[in-house]
Amino acid sequence: MKTREKILLALIIISLALLAVILSFGALGAVPLKTIRPLGSFYLYFMANNNIVIQEIYPSITKPSDFWAASTEGITAILWDYRGLDTLFETSVFFFAIIGSVSVFRYYSVSLEEKNKKNTNNSSTNTKTSGQGLSLIVKLITRINFVVIIAVSASIAFHGQLTPGGGFQGGATLAVAPLLAIAALSRYFVEDVGLKKNTMLTIRTLGLLIIGLLALTPLIMGFAGGNPYIMENQPKSWAMFIGFPSFGLGVLLGSLAFYNMAELLAVGAGFTVVFLLLTLPEEFFKKILSREVGKQ
C-alpha cells in the first residue's frame, strides 16, 4: 500500500467516524425511536383488520376495509399490496438482468454425449454413477436434500401472507437445488433431467406474466363498474369489483398467495438460468468466441 493511499484511507475513516458521532447524537433524531412512525403504525393497524374497532384511532376513516391488505404479515402486505407496483418492477429488474446476462453469454446447450464423444476413454454414460461430479455419498445426499429443499421453499412461499417469507425468499431457497445439482452431480445431469436454458426462461416469463395478469384483474373487472383500480387486494369503496375473495380453505387467502406462488416460479427458474450460464464449460466457450472473432 502506498503512502498516498494510506492517508486517503485514514481520511475516509476519520471523516466517516465524525459523521457517526454526529448521527448518533441526534442528526436523524435519536435513531432507534421508542415510538413508531405514523406511516408504519397506519400499515400495522390496517393490514389485517377490516373491522370498525379502529375508528377511535382513525376517526376520519369510515370504511376501514378500503385499506385492508388481507395479510397478517406486515412486510408481504406492503410489498405486494401497498407498494405492489414497486415490487412488480423490481421483479422486472431481475428479469432484465438475466436477459442481459443471456445476451452477454451467447450459448447453446452442451449434452453429455457430446462431451463424452470428446474423451472417448470415459465410456460410461450413466449419469448417476459415472465420473461426473463429486463422490457417491455427496451425490445421494444431494438428491435426498432436493426433497427437503423443495418442501421447505414451497412452505415458505405459500405461507407468505401468514408467516415470514414470500415469493422471493422461497425462490432464493429453491435456487439452491439447481446450484447443488450443478456442483455435486454436474451440469450435464441438470440438462439431461430437462432443466434446459430455454425451458427455464419460458417458465420465468410465465411467472412474470401471471403476476402481471393478477395485477390487471381488478382493473379489468373494475371497467364494468366504471371505477377500475390496479394491483391490490383491498376492496375500494368507489369500485364495483369488491376485491379478491379474502378467506379460502380455512386461511387468509387474498391475491397475495397467488402473487407469491408466481414469484416462486419466476425466481427459481431465473436463478437456474443464471447458474446454467455461469457453469458453461470454458473450452466450448473459447471455440464459440474464436469463431466469432474470426468472422469479423
Binding site: 415470514p164 447443488l180 464449460p281
Partner: peptide, 27 residues
C-alpha cells in the same frame, strides 16, 4: 431463517470442495 442458513452453509462447503477437486465447476 435457521434452515436457510444451514442449507446455504452446506452449499458453500460443496462449492469449495468442487473448486479444489475439479477443473471446471460444471463437471
Amino acid at each position: 431463517g435457521a434452515i436457510i442458513l444451514a442449507i446455504w452453509a452446506y452449499a458453500l462447503d460443496i462449492f469449495v470442495a468442487k473448486y479444489y477437486e475439479k477443473k471446471e465447476l460444471g463437471e
